[in-house]
Computed example of a mutant assay.
Amino acid sequence: MKKIIPFAKIEATGNDFIILDDREIAAALLSPEMIKNWCDRHFGIGADGLIHVSVSGPTTPRMLFFNADGSRGAMCGNGLRAVALHLLTIGVCHKKHDNFIEADDGLHRFTVDEQGRISVELLLNEQNEKKIDAAALDLPAGIELLGFKQVGVPHLVLKTELDEFADFEKLGRRLRSHPLFGAQGTNVNLIRMVDENTIKVRTYERGVEGETFSCGTGVTACALLCWECFSPSQKTLTVQTRGGILKVEQKSGRLWLGGPAHIVFIGQKILEN
């Protein structure tokens, strides 16, 4: 039997997602193979990940995030912003109210400004942070270790003064599965300081197994380490990614990630049982 499933394709600074909700399909029907096929850029819809959102109950909307390879991910910063746009579009939330999305790592607030930029609150898990031995990483010339942060998911952060590092994807692939990070591995980020309050970030994402145009938790991890290591003068850092500009802000003891998000298209996919 065939069933037609509506979906939305949403990008947040080039990080793109397939959004489904529980009015059309139960999360239990999403198999890793199905998710992998839908995220395939040649034979499927194409995306960095798939997000299932529960909206039909009386409780706070809850998101389940899946990587493009079909594996579960605990959190996704740009995915949160994409879900926020979806909830606003279908009328579940209103931009003038305080709104929340629940993810595996807890409850996240989100806001929308007059220009349509969506900001989400991100949560830290400092208990899972670790000291990394730079020598064990065997980093190439021009690349330095900055640190490691757990922003929902693990992020190794490296630093360079080079305008462009051509072998970043190769380096990211090697470090992503380094024994220091255990079976789960890590995401790998490379930053370059543009000025005191602006950084450029590239991210190799596990689960996608490649460099993405943007990674919300990654740029947040990079911003946190910049505040710790370089003490920039501002509580808001501008982050340049391949997919656009993000802002990471410390405000009233909370950590916010903000930037644009857009609906690329909506469509229907045939689910064959």
Rank of each mutant, 00 (worst) to 15 (best):
M1C: 09
P6H: 12
K9R: 10
E11N: 14
N15H: 07
D16G: 04
F17V: 05
R23F: 03
E24Y: 13
E24R: 11
I25Y: 04
A27M: 11
L30G: 06
P32M: 09
P32H: 09
M34H: 08
M34G: 03
W38L: 14
W38P: 01
H42D: 09
F43W: 09
F43C: 11
G44S: 05
G44P: 01
G46S: 09
G46D: 07
A47R: 06
G49F: 00
L50C: 04
H52V: 03
T60R: 08
M63S: 09
A68M: 05
A68W: 00
S71C: 06
A74N: 14
G77C: 09
N78E: 06
V83N: 06
A84V: 00
A84E: 00
L85E: 02
L87S: 06
G91W: 03
C93F: 00
K95Q: 13
K96R: 14
F110H: 02
G116M: 02
L123I: 14
E126R: 14
K130T: 12
K131C: 11
I132R: 04
I132D: 05
A135H: 13
A136I: 03
L137D: 03
A141C: 12
G142E: 09
I143P: 09
E144A: 14
V157K: 00
L158M: 05
L158I: 02
K159F: 06
T160D: 10
E164F: 12
D167R: 15
E169Y: 03
L171G: 02
G172S: 10
R174M: 12
S177T: 13
F181N: 03
G182E: 07
A183P: 04
Q184K: 15
N187P: 10
V188L: 11
E196Q: 11
I199C: 11
V201D: 03
V201T: 06
E205D: 10
E205F: 01
E209P: 01
E211R: 03
T212R: 06
T212C: 10
F213P: 00
S214W: 00
V219E: 01
A221V: 01
L224G: 01
L225Q: 08
C226N: 10
W227I: 07
C229E: 14
F230D: 15
S231W: 04
P232V: 04
T238M: 14
G243R: 06
G243I: 08
G243E: 08
G244F: 08
Q250F: 08
S252L: 13
R254N: 13
L255I: 05
A261P: 01
V264F: 04
L271E: 08
